[in-house]
């Protein structure tokens, strides 16, 4: 994918392929635009349910998923729109799902918190905090037993670290050297509770040492840094040296879920993180390249906007499930 030569830990921007970088830009922007549209539709009152959005955290999803192959798998959480888009689900199948339509990726039975698509390498999102962590270990166990070279990237938040499932899942992945990339998106808050209120050592990557594997803290708003770290970790997992814990430092720019005004976040903290936006930072980086100009980015942006608004138009008209679908898909 990238033209980056293997082995070098400090990537030079110049070493990246231009098209690769523009593709990353399209992806990270797609997530932002998708989330903005969803928020609008939600506030407009046309979209049912609740939403947990990822504005401000887009680099984690794109950086990690770009380091994966199509047949690698991810597990996600209630805050999974970005992960799903980065793993290749289309805005169309996702928006249809958000509208509860029969044409959604889960036929309207999953909704915002349970989006997935097995063919694209994403099991349904797990909305129980940390619930996906043991699952990811088991998926990786299956890959190891069958001797495939697939890996699993398991996304979870800082809140999950306090759950027993985190401990049990990481420990089993460790003792069996499973090919799992544990990706902790540390956005400093679990719902309204700040991390330092519920954790004595807030450097989450330190936990890996307790289980006997490697952990690393990365600037989660630096897309290329996330990508490089994920690429190294995925390589280790494929070589049989997994698991790896990546802690990606980031910040949620939006409420925890619908209609959360975030009064528990200080103004200073918000200001600091708002000026550390992953997309703005990536744009600045891209524009230092002599072969990428604002007009190239504008072109990407126009495409992304078109794709999202097109999907919204379609989703508004997408067919609702028949009520007798209620009884289908309980058993295989």
């Amino acid at each position: 994918m990238s033209a980056q030569s293997p082995g070098s830990r400090e990537p030079q921007l110049a070493n990246y392929d231009r098209d690769f970088l523009l593709k990353l830009y399209a992806q990270i922007l797609l997530i932002r635009r998708f989330e903005e549209q969803v928020k609008f539709l939600f506030l407009e009152g046309t979209m049912p349910g609740t939403i947990h959005q990822c504005h401000g955290q887009e680099a984690t999803a794109v950086g990690v998923c770009t380091a994966l192959n199509k047949d690698d798998f991810i597990t996600s959480t209630f805050r999974g729109h970005g992960h799903a888009l980065a793993k290749g689900l289309t805005p169309r199948e996702m928006l249809d799902e958000l509208f509860g339509a029969a044409t959604g990726c889960c036929k309207g039975k999953g909704g915002s918190m349970h989006m997935g698509n097995m063919e694209k390498g994403m099991i349904p999102g797990i909305a129980i905090v940390a619930g996906g962590i043991p699952l990811a270990a088991g998926m990786a166990l299956a890959f190891k037993m069958r001797k495939t070279s697939q890996v699993v990237a398991c996304f979870f938040g800082d809140g999950a670290v306090a759950e027993g499932a985190f401990h049990e899942g990481l420990n089993m992945a460790a003792i069996w050297n499973l090919p799992v990339l544990f990706v902790c998106e540390n956005n400093l808050y679990g719902a309204s509770t700040r991390i330092d209120k519920v954790m004595k050592n807030i450097k989450i990557s330190d936990r890996a040492a307790g289980y006997g594997f490697r952990g690393e803290t990365v600037d989660g708003n630096d897309l290329l840094a996330v990508y490089e770290a994920a690429r190294r970790a995925v390589g280790e997992c494929r070589a049989g040296h997994g698991p790896v814990l990546l802690e990606l430092l980031t910040y949620r720019r939006t409420g925890h879920s619908r209609r959360d005004a975030c009064h528990y976040q200080s103004r200073d903290e918000r200001d600091a993180w708002f000026s550390n936006d992953p997309i703005e930072r990536f744009v600045q980086t891209l524009l230092t390249r002599s072969d990428i100009a604002q007009i190239d980015l504008d072109r990407v942006e126009a495409q992304v906007d078109h794709e999202v608004s097109d999907a919204v138009q379609q989703a508004r008209r997408a067919p609702q499930p028949a009520t007798n679908d209620l009884l289908r898909d309980v058993y295989a």
Binding site: I123, G138, L141, N171, M172
Partner: peptide, 17 residues
């Protein structure tokens, strides 16, 4: 680790085991 190994089993089942 009952929570953990049931999760592991379910994850493996999802992947075709």
């Amino acid at each position: 680790a009952e929570l953990g190994f049931f999760g592991v089993a379910i994850g493996a089942a999802l992947m075709g085991m």
